[in-house]
Design a protein around this nucleic acid. Structure first.
Lengths: 131, 131
DNA sequence: TTATCAGCTAACCTTTAGGTAACTACTAAT
DNA sequence: ATTAGTAGTTACCTAAAGGTTAGCTGATAA
């Protein structure tokens, strides 16, 4: 049985857990899906034009790129700049807010790399055991 | 026009960008989706039983929890322990590999929290301007 | 004896993400 | 005149994720 104190500690622990889950959900909602981080990574690399992004974010279609760019703009990660003149050029630029994602992108990159290594060594281990 | 040197630098930059995108894709594939990180967070908090997880991971259905647990087991994040005896109790436990996600979960938690704050202040700013 | 809890599974359905193809408007080059 | 490139949009379709409902087994509680 819990003392009151333990119940209190337990409740605070549970609350913190709920707050962490809510925060991670929020993050997944804003940057989850197959393409948003890819686009931001490609833009950080200097790609600003629609067709450049289409080439560098391999596999994305025009329709999906167009809708993802709109969502990224709505969420304050990028801005669409239409240079009137001749010819009309359209550039997408990262806004400072996209820099707040650096830590997330960095940790996911490191984890993804080590995960791929782990899977590779799991596979060679399982093949070695088939002797 | 590029000198050979600039072309080389450019190519390496592009290659690094491709590697980052591949790593982030791998990470999203393994831990993306609505539930996997939530389940790991709840388990890190001490929840080991199916019904505990169902209660603490709010909104998840039995079908989805069951299939996510299978995927997490296949990917080496958790292990299912069936204690034969009376009554048969089933416990899911985090494996050491799940600890490798701490950095990712931490950065996503911090980002998600600040993002929620940002959205809240964006809303109050837009309401203040409707004067 | 009926009901309830744990730990699922199966069948079915809806929603959302994403893919494909065609088409537009404009310009530039051949 | 035709072709190609830029920057998309529209309509349609598929596949995957996820939700709903029901039911199963085996135990315990009322």
């Amino acid at each position: 049985m819990d003392t009151n104190e333990q119940t209190q500690v337990n409740k605070e622990f549970t609350d913190e857990c709920v707050r962490i889950m809510a925060a991670v959900s929020d993050a997944l909602y804003a940057i989850g899906g197959k393409w948003k981080l890819m686009i931001i990574i490609a833009m950080a690399r200097g790609n600003t034009r629609f067709s450049e992004l289409q080439r560098h974010v391999t596999g994305i279609s025009a329709r999906v790129l167009s809708s993802e760019l709109k969502e990224l703009e709505m969420n304050g990660f990028i801005i669409k700049k239409v240079a009137v003149g001749y010819p009309v050029t359209i550039e997408y630029e990262l806004l400072p807010y996209s820099r707040t994602l650096e830590e997330v992108v960095g940790s996911m990159t490191r984890w993804g790399m080590q995960h791929r290594e782990k899977i590779k060594s799991d596979i060679s281990a399982s093949q070695a055991s088939k002797s």
